[in-house]
Every structure is written in C-alpha cells, then in structure tokens.
Design a protein around this nucleic acid. Structure first.
Lengths: 166, 166
DNA sequence: AAGATTACCTTGGTCGGCCAATTAATGCGT
DNA sequence: ACGCATTAATTGGCCGACCAAGGTAATCTT
C-alpha cells in the first residue's frame, strides 16, 4: 500500500475540474463514494443500490400503483419498469393488474421482500453512521440544511423542463 | 427555513428511507439531481456525464497513461476503457501505444477534443452557479468543509477493502 | 535464465439511469 | 358516439459504473 496519492482528499493538485466547479466536483466525489458504500452494504443482502428506495416505499405503503412509484421516486418510467422486472424475477416483488385501471399495474412486496426490511434498515443505519462519523449534531444539522438548499436549487433548475416537482 | 421544502423534497411524507438514514437519502437525492443537471448541460456540447472529468485531465496534463487516468479518476479500469472507446470513436481522444511500456497506452485529446474545453468550463461554471444559488460565502465554505469530512469518512470505509486510498 | 508475480488493459456480463418511440387503455371534447 | 389527447407501461438503445476473468507484457524471484 503505497501512500503516493491520497486521492481521497487532496485538493492540492486537482485538475481544472476543481477550478471550474469545486463544489460540483465535491458533490460528484461524495456521491460516488456514497453509492459505493451503499452498494457494498446492499450487496450483502441481495439488493442493488436504488432498489432499496423502491422496496422502502412498498414496505411503507403496501400495494402501490407503478405510476405512483415513478412519481415518488422521481425516476424515469423505463427505469422503474426494468427495476421491477428484476425485483420480480428475484422474488422480492409481485405485480398484478389494477382492476380499476386496466393499463396500470399494482406492485407489492412479497414475503421474501419483507424479509429484507430489517436488514435494509440495518444497512442504512450503518451507512448513515459511516457517512456522518465525526460530525457533531450541530454540523449534521448544518449539513442537512445546506444539502436541502442545494437540492432545492438543483430541483428548481431541473423542474422547469421535467417533472421534479412531484 | 424549516421543512418548507418546496416541491422536490417533501420530508413530511417521506418513506422509511428518511427515518433510517436521512442524510444518506439527502445525499442520494442531491447526487441524482446534480447528475441530471450536469447531464443536461453536457449533452448540449456532446459529452456524457463523467466524460468531462477525463477530458479535463487530458486538457490539463496532455498525453496521459491510461493507468494514470484510472488512478486519477478513481474509476474501474473497465469503465475507463469503455469510456475511452466511446470518446475515441467520437473523435475527442486519441490513443497510442506507449513506447516505454508495450502493454500501456497513452491517451491525449484531439483537436476536436480541445474545442470542447471552453464550453465545458462554461458548463461547469453554470452548474456550479445552479448548485450554489442562494448560499453566501460562509455557507459555501461550511458546505465544502462538511462535504470534505463526509468524503473522508466514506473514503476511509471504502479504502479498507478496495482502492480508494490507493 | 526460467518461473512466478504483478501491472495494464480488454471483454463480457449486470444494474441504475436516461431518452425516444410504441402500444394499450382511459377520458374528454364536440 | 366518435375522434383525439392524455396517461400507463413497455421496449430498445445508449452511457456510466461495477465485478469477474482473461491475455499480454514487464518485473521480481529463485
């Protein structure tokens, strides 16, 4: 293990990226690391990053219309379709046609799916702890506040074209 | 300032995700929105999100060994390979065998690639502005500091297994 | 010098995510 | 009632990103 390039936190010799948009750069890096951490934790319980959100909604709300999931997760319809196909094949999810609307389909967690609930909660707690280690409550609150502002910013600029605003 | 969260984030009726890991959830959302914003800006100039980092390094440092790019970008080797294949086919990048090491290959930006430089810088400035709108300098500094801590956290937990800490 | 190890890159597979275009069902307007 | 727009979901294509395996070249070991 050579410690040649502590690539994680060296802003010393960053490329133009840092000069152009240090925050965007930081956000990208944190996002990637966070995703990796989530992926590692979720893999152990048989899910891929992204799927846990969908399952959480299902655990939370029971049978849900697919279009509702799309709105809730703010994802592309095709993304949800494929995710559901995989989750269904994995046995964590069941889809049935909505009797009220024959073009819609209702999604719900299977028994196997519910089994994951506790493990996913544990994994997320672990992830949360990994993320926030060393941040005192005041810092956490400030981070939450600032992330909220950034999210609102990005959401607004994204919203004028495609549906972010629920 | 409280949970008046406009449109995008209704923390009021969030699923278990928020209860389990509000920060992880926020990070995921910000990451996704940020990526979307970047994608929208980059698309207009012929790049996909992620490629701009690679090009920036090339513009910055000239001909670079592929393995160096992998270390710099902290990406999987196969990711870089495929990205380069696409960038090469798009005409933005040129690869040549390294005379010093016949298994390595040197990557450099083409003329067409350099043309993108200014536009990418502009796009990133725009992205940075979109991200940080409404944050005063003190908030920006605090956000940078906190993101740095989070990054270090995630980097550390990622490092004990695979290649973040090099 | 021959063999084992490591480094560099590629291929093939999987997933999340997007867009564009399609089909099917519902609803609305006249 | 009929036609037309809207909504629900799917398919196919593309890209970023990961892992697992593989092949070749350089280097270290013996």
């Amino acid at each position: 293990m050579t410690s040649e390039d502590p690539a994680c936190t060296q802003y010393s010799r960053l490329p133009s990226a840092a000069a152009c948009g240090p925050f965007s750069h930081a956000v990208s890096r944190v996002a990637r690391l966070h995703r990796i951490a989530a992926g590692r934790l979720l893999r152990a319980i048989g899910l891929y990053p992204g799927q846990e959100f969908l399952m959480m909604h299902l655990w939370d709300a029971g049978a849900t219309r697919q279009s509702e999931l799309i709105k809730l997760l703010e994802l592309d319809p095709s993304t949800v379709t494929k995710m559901l196909q995989r989750l269904e094949q994995a046995g964590y999810v069941r889809r049935s046609p909505d009797p009220k609307d024959r073009r819609a389909s209702l999604v719900e967690s299977t028994e196997d799916g519910f089994v994951l609930h506790e493990r996913v909660k544990a994994a997320w707690s672990e992830l949360e702890e990994q993320t926030l280690t060393g941040l005192d409550p005041a810092e956490q609150a400030e981070l939450a506040r600032l992330l909220g502002k950034v999210e609102a910013n990005l959401c607004r600029t994204a919203g004028d074209e495609a549906g972010c605003g629920k």
